[in-house]
Amino acid sequence: MDLTLKVWRQNGPQDAGRMETYPVSGVSPDMSFLEMMDMMNDQIIRNGGDPVAFDHDCREGICGMCSMFINGEAHGPNRGTTTCQLHMRSFKDGDTITIEPWRASAFPVVKDLAVDRSSFDRVIQSGGYISVNTSGETLDANAIPVPKGQADDAFSAATCIGCGACVATCKNASAMLFVSAKVSQFALLPQGQPERATRVQRMVEQMDKEGFGNCTNTGACAVECPKGIDLSNIARMNRDYLSASAKEE
């Protein structure tokens, strides 16, 4: 396959940045998108250029590192996949592919396609945990009865890999899907109950502080989420926050 790549280049956080065009030839349809990016970088390096910086790690769809806004969509055109799970067979020979970084003030560009997603980490630090001692005397999780449906919903919420596709996709750069998944995974389980009210309040407060936009319920986040996180999590967070604020003394 012969492709034309239009890639966002930005030397650092303060640089204005610009789109640059790279023709790439001999791409195999069986390559993953990241392997194709490696091929492009190899070509750039051989020509004495600076390779394009992009985030990647596990390359099997579970770490949440790979990002990239491909042809106007987070992680490209396919549903339920990260960029590493996107294969070149999803494109046609001769295609022009536009590749941009996640765009949000809360995700500043570090270099080229790599963005700083530590705002997500700070949201987690503000309350996305349960305060239990885990040094040796841990209870067997199965000793606490949890209804099957509730356990399933909690696990579904916990599959969020924090990749940021929801923020990148949302026209408002809202982080509601991510934060609500991280709120829900504890709100649905007995272990999460003692801190349920303070958790949702603190995490929403931190989310706002980080400068994410407001949710307008377009539902785009859930469509583009590689893990299929559901909008019901956002409704649960809306509910929990309302009840936590109402009960607050």
Binding site: E100, A104, A106
Partner: peptide, 17 residues
């Protein structure tokens, strides 16, 4: 303000009404 720099190419119709 949450997205001061927009996308060059954005396919909003792909995921929202």
């Amino acid at each position: 303000n949450a997205r001061p720099v927009g996308y060059v190419k954005e396919n909003g119709a792909a995921n929202a009404k």
